[in-house]
Amino acid sequence: MKVLIVDDEKHAQDTLEILLKKDFPSQFQIVGKCFSLDEALQHLREKGHPDLVFLDVQMPHRSGFELFAEMPHRDFEVIFTTAHDMTREAINLRPFGYILKPINPNELKSKMEEFIENYEETNINRKLDSLIGNSQSLELQLFSTNDNIEFVHNHEIAYMKGDRGYTSIYKTDGTEIMVSKNLKAVQENYPEKQFMRVSKSLVLNIKNIIRYDKKHNKLFMKDNLILDAGSNTIKNIKI
């Protein structure tokens, strides 16, 4: 993770760098050390954005607060370093946090552990968002349950059953996933010719149907899954 240090005092810059290298030797890369806000802005515009900026509040000529006005849509986090407790103005800027000077090594370590956890969680969410955006081309859907995010490939689904505002998704391996969406909302994410609404509460994946037992009125599906089928269900299957 890339870190930029902005502070008009060299010993403050060096202290941060030494402590980061001591406690997190392989996790943070110091990409620059700037002595003023203008120098920092130039660095950000010319050399790209880091993941985190340590930003001194009180500097000659311009306050560290002004970074937020210059870059209102920043894509990096900011931790203020200051000799005074944070003001309401600073808190309203919504930095990741702040550390009082002189810097306490334990306080810094705790804040950086919090940053690492947040960074990793954010990265996971970004990857999930990317997967969700590409899910149709991958023939994959993501379903959020109470405990997990379930990755379900289209070919794994045998059928879906709706019950008012909920839908149970039955997979060919016999497992079930319940999601808090009605059947219509779930079905809309699937190709209609493959996932066919055959009754008010039932959607079948016809690619997983092997045969229909006329005598016993049962549908045999892949992985030895057997489904009791009403006569209307069979009539509504359009090949």
Rank of each mutant, 00 (worst) to 15 (best):
S180D: 03
F80S: 00
A83C: 05
F115P: 00
L100V: 04
N134T: 06
E113D: 11
T81S: 04
I177L: 15
F115A: 02
K127P: 00
P102G: 11
N182E: 08
K161N: 05
S110R: 12
Q136T: 09
E121S: 06
Y159G: 01
E156I: 11
N118P: 05
T175P: 04
P95H: 06
I169W: 05
V179T: 05
V179Q: 03
H153A: 09
K109R: 14
T122A: 14
D129L: 02
D147T: 13
E156W: 01
L131G: 00
A158M: 14
N106C: 14
E89I: 08
E121Y: 08
N182D: 13
T81K: 02
V198A: 00
I124N: 00
S135Y: 03
I99Y: 06
K184W: 09
Q194R: 13
H155R: 09
N154H: 11
L128G: 01
E188Q: 14
V179P: 03
F195R: 06
N125I: 10
L93T: 01
E120Y: 13
I99R: 03
M160I: 06
L138A: 03
H155L: 12
Y166W: 01
K111H: 08
F96T: 04
G174M: 12
S199P: 10
M178F: 04
D163W: 03
M160G: 01
Y98M: 07
H155W: 10
I124G: 00
E120K: 07
K109N: 12
M160P: 01
S201M: 11
K181R: 08
L128I: 14
I132A: 00
Y190Q: 05
E121P: 06
N118Y: 15
S137G: 02
K161D: 03
I169K: 12
M178G: 07
E150S: 06
K127Q: 08
N146R: 15
E89C: 04
G165H: 15
E107K: 14
Y170D: 08
Q187G: 08
G174S: 14
F115M: 15
P191G: 08
